[in-house]
Each structure stands twice: as structure tokens, then as C-alpha cells.
Simulated scan of single mutants.
Amino acid sequence: METNSYPLVKAFYSPAQEFGLPVPATVKIPGFEAGHPAAPPINEGYVFMPEKLRDILAFWQSSEKALKIIGDPATGKTSLVEQFHARLRWPLYKVSCSPGTESRELIGQFFPTADGSLKWVDGPVLRAAREGTSVLLDEYNVLEPGESTGLNMLIEGYSIVIPSTGEVVVPAAGFKVFATENSVESSLSVVGRNVQDVANDDRFMVTTASYLPPELEERAVVNALVGDGVSPDVATMIAQQVVKVANSVRAAYRTDKSGVMTKPMTTRSAIRWARLVRRFANVNDSDGPMVYALRRAFQMNAEMDAVVTEFTRAALGTGTNGQP
């Protein structure tokens, strides 16, 4: 079945149940019935940061058409958008932008058919505009500025004319554009980022993304482990150790002037590490199973490995052989 032919049936959901908001159960927010193939799956272990949920809800309930989320890699930009849509069972067409992405791929173009004729096929931005659904442009600022300006009319919510067909498309109610990007000024090793045209930037409401506070990050790690069948007590112990090290790495990265600390540890890496700790619990390694799992969850050069290993031993209260 083609995604854009799938029926969209309105439904209503409780923000208290879906987002854990302290509002009466009688309060409802519109969404769609479950089952649309473009609606992201719900990650039951996902933890919403209250400030970020506040921003995205304010955007969602406003007349604004476009929201840009800026932050360092793996600070949860994409997952925030995905899980917000998942809770509303709302279709989200996702595009991983690249330097070669052209606006015609996002708007639409003609494709040959089996009988030799040409057929117009909507791109993800135009499809979302027709349906009144959402599109996510991931890594938005790797697009060439000239290509991103080709989206200006739709991002503003105006109708557009498809030059190849003469059709006028008016964005349906509910159409939203989300863009995520790593900051051009980021100190992390991200390359190929562009400064977008001012007229294009001006069409976006803006919010930022950052790492979860320790208590929320621990909850995210615990949720992932419990989902894998780990007991809550063991999951909590592992989460506390992993998050403590992750924050030590981030703090060292921010203050390091020697170039040894080449990157921070993301929540994604912390969860991977926690899961591997259980996998490698019985590994007989001179540095212990925790460090063994660390080295398979988080890629580091030798100098950074030595520093992070010491952070891990300090968090565990162990010696150089991984033993108390």
C-alpha cells in the first residue's frame, strides 16, 4: 500500500497518558488513529525533557509552520520529534539530508513508468503539505543554501505552483516542518555544515537540544535495561555508574585543552554501554567487564581510552585490574 494513499482518521489522546503531563485526564490533544506506516513507533522507554516538550507543544499548538532544533550530535533532536509524533500516531516523513539533496527531491518530480510515460511523484515535503502531516529534515544545514530557499514558500505555509504541471497546492491544516541541525559553531567533529540563507532561517521557530539531566538520563538507561529484562535494582545500579562516567567524560571534554578528549559520550552510547555490561558480565578481562563493555560501546583513541577507563574505575571504586 502506498503511504500517501493510507487513510488518515482523526483521534484524540491524553497528554497526561502520552507525555506524563500533570493535566486532567479529560484534556485531549488531536492525533490520528494508529496504523499509518509513516507514524513512528512508540519507544516506551523514552524520557521527555520537560523544557523541550514545552517548546515543541507550544510550536505544535501555534500557527507557526516550521521548527528548527539545534544542538550537538546525539543530544536527542531527532528522537524528540519522532517520539512526539509517535504518541499522537501522527505521520512524520523523515529525510536524511545530504550535500547532494536537491529541493526537487523534497518537493517532487516526474518519474518514468512501465509504459514509457512520466508520472509526477510528490516529495516528502509536498506530501506532508497535501495531507496536513509533518516532515522532518534531519541534518538540515548540510543542504546547500540555494536548495533550502526552494522550500521557503511551503515553510511559510503559502500555496505553491508546481511548474511542471501547473497544479496549485495549498498546504492543509496541520502541516508542520521540523528541521534538526548541528551548530556551525559546534566544537564537536562535525563537518560540511552550511550557514543558511537569512530569509530561510527567519521562517523557523527555534529551540535547542542538550543532554538529559542525570536523573532523567538514568531513567532512560533504566528503561532500556528493564525493557531488555534486567531487574529494576540491577538496572538502576548500572545506570548510575554509566551516567556518572558519561557526565565525567562530558565535563572533561568541555575543559580539555590538550586534544585528548575528542568527543563527549552521548546518551545513545551510554545506553549501548549499559546493555553490553549485561552481555559481557562474565568476561574474564584484566580491566574487568565494565571497561571491556565500554570499549565496545564507545569508540576512543588510546589516549582518551586511558582517561575514560580511569573515570570508570573511579565510578566503580575498583583498582587497575577491575577489582575492588
Score class of each variant (00 low, 15 high):
58 A>I: 09
167 E>M: 11
25 A>F: 11
57 L>V: 06
255 T>S: 12
190 V>Y: 13
297 A>L: 00
19 F>Q: 02
2 E>P: 12
292 Y>F: 14
76 G>I: 09
71 G>D: 08
288 G>P: 07
57 L>E: 05
51 E>T: 00
198 V>Y: 13
246 A>I: 02
157 G>N: 09
189 S>T: 11
283 V>Y: 07
64 E>T: 00
22 P>N: 10
99 P>E: 15
202 D>W: 04
127 R>N: 13
30 P>S: 04
79 S>R: 10
315 A>R: 00
28 K>V: 13
16 A>M: 12
42 I>N: 11
99 P>R: 15
222 V>G: 03
143 L>E: 05
179 A>F: 06
166 G>C: 05
290 M>I: 02
93 Y>L: 09
254 R>E: 14
231 S>L: 06
138 D>R: 06
100 G>I: 15
310 E>S: 13
49 M>N: 10
295 R>L: 09
58 A>M: 09
84 F>K: 11
304 M>P: 10
322 G>A: 02
105 E>K: 10
47 V>R: 05
120 W>K: 07
54 R>E: 15
58 A>W: 07
150 G>D: 00
56 I>V: 11
73 P>N: 12
173 A>R: 15
205 M>E: 15
88 L>I: 06
149 T>A: 00
253 Y>F: 14
169 V>F: 06
269 S>D: 09
233 D>A: 01
246 A>N: 03
233 D>V: 00
195 V>T: 03
223 N>C: 00
283 V>W: 04
324 P>W: 12
25 A>K: 13
103 S>A: 10
135 V>D: 12
224 A>C: 01
269 S>F: 03
276 L>V: 05
108 G>F: 01
318 T>W: 02
241 Q>N: 15
261 M>S: 05
312 T>E: 09
128 A>T: 07
311 F>L: 07
191 V>A: 05
95 V>Q: 01
126 L>Q: 06
